[in-house]
Amino acid sequence: MKTSYSEKVHTWGRIWCSLALVMLMLFPAAASIYYNAWPDGMALLKGLMGVVPIFWTVGAIEAFTYSPMLGSGGSYLGFVTGNIANLKLPCALNAMEIAGVKPGTEEGELISTISIAVSSIVTTLIIIAGVLLLSWLQPILESELLAPAFANILPALFGALAVVFISKNWKIALAPLLFMLVLFIAVPSLAESVSVLVPVGAIIAIAAARVLYKKGYL
């Protein structure tokens, strides 16, 4: 039974994600056809040259770093719906913690998929509501009063996450944490490329964990 579910997830995932890739192209294609305005080859190439080298690399890194944590179903969904590091992954982590299941097990896979699916649906609906109510919402969301709250959403999220997960795994977290602290304080401009540094943190954590494990400290 176990293999059959995980086999099926990959079949479903590949079908849905292939369709999603086609669907995503639908928008620029529709805009080009409707306005009879296809991009000039050179302009498109120039535009892509500015984006592809960085974003294709980041996308590849994310696929390899996040998918083991998200699980199969969670990855097939998360990589279509986006906002992984700031939303889907913390959501799945929290869900697995609440349900008392571990990532990498079938139970963890299912709980992660459920939480990412629910989160994706809710996110999409909230954005739809936001678009519909935009004229009413815009002055509130862009008010000076609320600006600091939205500017600090990541510290507010990761502070709480850190308490739960680092307290349990502080031995593994120590080396990557120290490295990242020193790195970001020394080179503040790196804050913009944090997603590139996630795999660096992961490699340091894995290396440190390996040493600790071999020496019997874990």
């Binding site: 990498g104 490295f179 304080i185 943190g201 954590a205 964990a209």
Partner: peptide
């Protein structure tokens, strides 16, 4: 056991990167 530790280490790496980022501007 190592498989579990490996996944935990991935999570820790991610959380560390974002926690480090929070300190990026303290010299300002």
């Amino acid at each position: 056991r190592w498989g579990e530790i490996f996944l935990t280490a991935l999570f820790m790496g991610m959380i560390s990167a974002f926690l480090g980022m929070i300190f990026a501007d303290i010299t300002a």
